[in-house]
Design a binder for these strands. Structure first.
Lengths: 202, 202
DNA sequence: CGTGAGTTTGACCAGATGGTCAAATCAAGA
DNA sequence: TCTTGATTTGACCATCTGGTCAAACTCACG
């Protein structure tokens, strides 16, 4: 394992290649379904070489998840309590849907983890995520108190946004099997926009 | 393997125990993450004994999925084109949400399969499921033409119902981590009901 | 009972998989 | 160029896993 110094050119390149490959493989097959050989091959490294950069399969997975969690929650984080309520929420929704289109692997990585009980990120959920959601729920409640948006259960409002947007990334195969040639996001964007306009109008 | 005769008392009991155990294990760990030993142990059988009833791990999985698909789609199947539109749809939603509460393992079984690209049920999706959804989408469109419900993309309307209801089964850990003690379904039911009343009112 | 089909099991196997290690090779600064 | 740490690899290992098999056991029924 490399010492504690600044990462070399090669270290940077290989670590990045490994994480990129791991994202492909873990998101497509889940933790248990992914093999170190597969990740190594996709990263263009031999298995022992890969294990020179990360001590174990688990370590790769952990590095991936924690590295992506911030990216994943950024849109919610950006929800601005000083902005125009309806506009803020619709823009949050747009960004989430965009992430489902542009980062489906990340979405499925988390989906895989969650659907199997989140054995490796349970802490992050009940600490960091809960704190963030509670905070934003308070903002939503405040907007409701002001009569700016319809009164609804703020947590379930957030869940509904997650469900509606991530569905298109996580269950992509199903959506495409049913829609055929039609681009899922073409129809999803206006549908979801309409839905929340109607729902949130007081 | 037992002959082609009527199943004996023991066969019935053991097959049922195996499928029940398999549902537990597959829904919690996915196909690849589940082991035959685990299923056998949970069914109270030895591994060779289990493989006396099903020829392979794959066969158990297939039997489970195809056995449950009908159950899973029954609520949509029951959507009655001759019923009162709003009432029919809201009742469909209620039944779907109820399934998330009462049959979360089944939901996660399909979720696991779908999120990993549905390698084992791709055919069922683009044939049976697509046909059913297209047919019900036509019913929805008809109701929209009659002005009974708001005009929306029918397929995405169906997707939204799936997303909102199944979210509570598939991502149960996340929902509970955020809600704490609060019962997810207590809040979800009225939230979703309100949502669709607002959305569908012309 | 006795008997034949149905059921169960311990021992076993081959391949896959996560991980190790010493030796070989490479790269960059003195 | 030489040296030293960084990088890479082939060979190897223990364990896990899906699956097999022959032998043993049990059950239902004539």
């Amino acid at each position: 394992m490399p010492k504690d110094r600044a990462p070399t050119r090669i270290q940077k390149k290989n670590r990045a290649a490994i994480l990129e490959a791991a994202l492909n493989v873990f998101s497509a097959h889940g933790f248990r379904g992914a093999t170190v050989d597969q990740i190594a091959a996709e990263a263009g490294l031999s298995k022992p070489n890969l294990l020179y950069y990360f001590p174990s399969k688990e370590a790769i997975h952990t590095a991936l998840l924690s590295g992506l969690l911030d990216t994943w929650l950024a849109p919610l984080h950006d929800l601005d309590e000083n902005g125009e309520p309806m506009e803020e929420i619709l823009s949050y929704i747009t960004r989430k849907l965009q992430m489902s289109r542009e980062l489906p692997r990340e979405s499925r990585l988390f989906a895989n983890e969650l659907v199997q009980g989140a054995p490796r990120i349970h802490d992050a959920l009940s600490n960091d995520l809960k704190a963030l959601v509670d905070q934003k729920a308070a903002v939503l409640t405040h907007w409701m108190d002001q009569g700016k948006i319809a009164r609804l259960h703020p947590h379930h409002l957030i869940f509904s946004i997650w469900a509606l947007t991530q569905h298109y990334a996580d269950f992509d195969v199903q959506v495409r099997a049913i829609l055929g040639d039609e681009d899922p996001f073409e129809g999803a964007a206006p549908f979801i926009d309409t839905l929340y306009r109607k729902l949130l109008t007081p």
